[in-house]
Amino acid sequence: MAKDIIKELKKYNLLGRSGSGFPTGLKWELVKNCRADKKYIICNGSEGEPKNFKDKFILENYPEIVIEGIKTALGAINNSSAFIYLRKDYYQKFNDNLEKLIKELPIKIIKKQGGYLGGEETVICQALEGRRLEPRIKPPFPTEFGLWGYPTLVNNVETFYCAGKISQGRYEGTRFYTITGDVKNQGVYELPKKYTVKEILKKTDNYPDFDFFVQSGGGAMGEILLEKELNKTIQGIGCIVVFNAEKTDPFALMKEWTKFFLAENCDRCAPCREGIYRIDEMLNNKKMDKQALNDIFFVLKETSLCPLGANAYTPFETLIKKIIK
């Protein structure tokens, strides 16, 4: 195990792989330096972003490295114990195997509650405490006031995988990418994190020979990119969905998103609850009011409480701007 793991995490500039991209070393340090008699570590395996299943792939193929990552965190953070918070189907699939790997370590596997939002870090704390599945107001951040009020480190499965690799001295700066949609070779790939979307599609032999666009960073929250915009790395989750431009109805696609957000948001903040409802209404009535859309995007981005609301505008805004025009 690396001597000063936090220093190592910082050296490799590891960023959280849940989509938010928060510096992992800093997060560990914040929890470590908090004064408290108890601390918690949560490995977030709730993977709720549609069309994305890279964490499942990791749990299936490299569970021992994930456990190694959690073990490293347990070592780095005094008086800590850990939870692995798993989607229901992942729980069923991986619980037994993970239990075997956990052995004597203070790690408990917990079944996820609720839908998409059940994977947000403060909602996980709410769930584990048996409270209503709603995001908490931040600050305070879980790093200082998390589970039962104790400093809590919440990292994604892939982040712990990376931490495990770093701790073993085997980290090679890779990242996992789910590739789906109109491609030949759907699946999850481990590739260098510096790869652009274009490179990822090429390397996996998925680069289309037809007119297309992609959704990059998540099947719901991701941004729409045109073919000419693919020379950049992914913002958000390592997930690329390819759409055949000719065969894709952008309105049907947006409807898919509103359906997802309406079902998965918690309806607490006015901009998210009412804004997404109005986008959906416009789609149903086939009457898009550009001014109203822009206004809704603006308040979603500026005044939502949680990342779901604050990022929900991205796919709509980019699709409308680039595809519908």
Binding site: A270, P271, E274, G275, R278, D295, I296, F298, V299, E302, T303
Partner: peptide
Amino acid sequence: TRKINLELLFS
């Protein structure tokens, strides 16, 4: 933001 959020609340 206040104007738009109020319009959404009124809705």
